[in-house]
Simulated scan of single mutants.
Amino acid sequence: MFLILDEEASSVRPSDSSGNPIEDPGVINGFPLMAAHLLTQWRRQGHPPQEIRKFFA
């Protein structure tokens, strides 16, 4: 899975391998959980995460 971390909007969105946003993230298994984890890290650290610390299967 590829992600876009939008610093201006403070959001995480799924993308394809070329960096194009995927319109319906609901079709991606595990995306809501991963996005919530990354946003929590982002808010806690005050900047976008440099690495993902959990493995989502």
Score class of each variant (00 low, 15 high):
31 F>L: 08
4 I>F: 07
37 H>S: 10
55 F>P: 01
12 V>F: 05
46 G>M: 14
50 Q>K: 10
33 L>N: 11
44 R>D: 14
42 W>K: 03
33 L>C: 07
25 P>N: 05
10 S>L: 03
9 A>E: 13
55 F>H: 15
21 P>A: 03
7 E>K: 14
6 D>K: 08
25 P>S: 06
21 P>L: 03
52 I>R: 12
2 F>G: 01
4 I>C: 07
35 A>T: 04
5 L>W: 07
54 K>G: 03
4 I>M: 09
31 F>G: 06
41 Q>G: 00
9 A>K: 07
16 D>S: 00
46 G>R: 12
49 P>E: 06
18 S>C: 06
56 F>L: 11
43 R>Q: 15
25 P>R: 04
35 A>R: 11
55 F>K: 13
12 V>S: 06
55 F>G: 13
19 G>K: 05
17 S>P: 01
8 E>R: 09
47 H>L: 11
1 M>Y: 10
31 F>A: 08
44 R>A: 15
25 P>L: 04
3 L>G: 05
3 L>C: 04
30 G>C: 06
12 V>K: 02
46 G>I: 13
31 F>M: 09
5 L>T: 04
35 A>D: 07
57 A>K: 08
53 R>F: 10
17 S>G: 03
45 Q>N: 12
25 P>C: 07
31 F>H: 08
24 D>Q: 04
15 S>M: 00
11 S>F: 00
45 Q>V: 12
53 R>H: 13
38 L>G: 01
49 P>G: 04
3 L>D: 03
23 E>T: 08
56 F>I: 11
52 I>Q: 13
18 S>N: 11
46 G>Y: 13
20 N>M: 09
48 P>T: 05
43 R>P: 02
52 I>V: 15
50 Q>W: 00
26 G>E: 08
13 R>I: 01
39 L>W: 02
14 P>N: 03
38 L>V: 07
15 S>I: 01
53 R>K: 14
51 E>D: 11
40 T>N: 08
12 V>H: 03
35 A>L: 06
27 V>L: 07
32 P>S: 14
51 E>V: 08
52 I>M: 14
16 D>W: 00
44 R>H: 13
38 L>I: 12
1 M>T: 12
50 Q>Y: 00
5 L>D: 06
10 S>I: 01
39 L>M: 14
44 R>K: 14
54 K>A: 15
55 F>R: 14
35 A>E: 10
18 S>L: 12
42 W>H: 04
53 R>I: 10
27 V>G: 09
4 I>L: 15
11 S>M: 05
12 V>N: 03
20 N>F: 05
21 P>N: 07
37 H>Y: 13
17 S>H: 13
14 P>M: 02
23 E>P: 00
13 R>E: 11
38 L>S: 02
14 P>L: 03
23 E>Q: 09
33 L>Y: 09
40 T>H: 05
55 F>E: 15
26 G>D: 08
17 S>M: 10
7 E>N: 14
20 N>E: 10
7 E>S: 15
49 P>S: 06
48 P>E: 07
16 D>Y: 00
2 F>E: 07
35 A>Y: 04
34 M>F: 06
18 S>A: 13
39 L>H: 02
25 P>W: 03
49 P>W: 03
34 M>L: 15
54 K>C: 12
16 D>V: 00
57 A>M: 08
7 E>I: 15
34 M>H: 05
9 A>H: 02
50 Q>E: 09
52 I>K: 09
